[in-house]
Simulated assay, not measured.
Amino acid sequence: MVPHFSNVGPLPEVDTQTMIEVDRLMMEEFQISLFQMMENAGRCLAVLAREIALDGAPEDKRVVVLAGGGGNGGGALTAARRLATWGAKVCVVTAQGRDRMGDVPKAQLDTLLGLENVVEMSVEDIGVPVDVILDGLIGYSLKGSPRGPAARLIEWANNHRAPTLALDVPSGYDASNGTINEPAIQAAATLTIALPKLGMQTRGATSHIGTLYCADISVPPQLYQCLTPRLDLAPIFQRSDILCVRSAFHQEL
């Protein structure tokens, strides 16, 4: 049985440029660091994975995390660390070497790999079973279709029987215009950060978004009033850090 998360209904959507500005304001005006945002996003993704994909019991379940070198990858690695501390067996697959990762995601990777129930490997070496795949390959900064190792990892996830949970956007989804590139993750559920990205709430995106959830990363409501155009958004996370924005009724985990 899939646990119930509070249903918030449609929310305002933001594009890539707006999210860049949200991140800038968070760090420069509100003194909320990338590390803090990453921790909040990762904790929410870990809770969602535990509740909807791991039957509320992560111990001895097998989690594969696909991580890029940016903030989205760092958030997925943070989620994997949480799940590992809850007893899950974690396999880490990165789309690039450490020399091409940002400082904060690289630190998250090093911390994760220090845990005894975590291994780093290629997807060719991952056996079965796998209980859930965490997609943190490409975030809202995507430009053009995924290429190289990221594209191959997307195809691997789409061909695997285990459900994929995407962080913020399914890798391959272009948040600047709401289009889906090829290849793109076909997620069972997407946990978008702060607010849904452009086009996510349309039914045409359901095959790649899955059930759409929204995560609280502690964006102050007054921050949205600093945007152009201004968003007058009441606090939406008073009762839960995770909200269900739109269900994909035909999909089950």
Score class of each variant (00 low, 15 high):
residue 121 M to T: 15
residue 231 L to Q: 09
residue 180 I to L: 09
residue 6 S to W: 12
residue 149 P to G: 11
residue 233 L to V: 15
residue 187 A to Y: 08
residue 99 D to I: 09
residue 25 L to M: 10
residue 189 A to T: 09
residue 66 L to G: 00
residue 240 S to I: 06
residue 235 P to R: 09
residue 1 M to V: 15
residue 81 R to Y: 01
residue 105 P to M: 12
residue 242 I to R: 06
residue 161 R to N: 14
residue 248 A to R: 04
residue 130 V to T: 02
residue 104 V to H: 08
residue 78 T to G: 09
residue 178 G to C: 02
residue 113 L to W: 04
residue 244 C to F: 10
residue 246 R to T: 06
residue 48 L to A: 02
residue 222 Q to Y: 10
residue 228 T to S: 14
residue 168 D to E: 06
residue 110 D to R: 11
residue 124 E to H: 14
residue 162 A to K: 05
residue 186 Q to R: 11
residue 78 T to N: 11
residue 126 I to T: 05
residue 131 D to R: 02
residue 160 H to L: 03
residue 143 K to Q: 15
residue 27 M to T: 14
residue 5 F to I: 11
residue 205 A to N: 03
residue 108 Q to V: 08
residue 87 G to R: 05
residue 12 P to K: 07
residue 204 G to Q: 09
residue 139 G to Y: 00
residue 211 T to Q: 04
residue 8 V to C: 13
residue 157 A to I: 06
residue 249 F to L: 15
residue 178 G to L: 00
residue 204 G to M: 11
residue 252 E to K: 14
residue 190 T to E: 05
residue 170 P to S: 13
residue 194 A to R: 07
residue 22 V to F: 05
residue 211 T to D: 09
residue 20 I to E: 15
residue 97 G to E: 14
residue 174 D to W: 04
residue 31 Q to G: 10
residue 114 G to T: 04
residue 212 L to Q: 06
residue 215 A to S: 15
residue 147 R to P: 02
residue 74 G to D: 02
residue 101 M to C: 12
residue 105 P to A: 07
residue 197 K to H: 12
residue 204 G to S: 08
residue 57 A to W: 08
residue 210 G to D: 07
residue 67 A to C: 10
residue 184 A to Y: 01
residue 163 P to G: 04
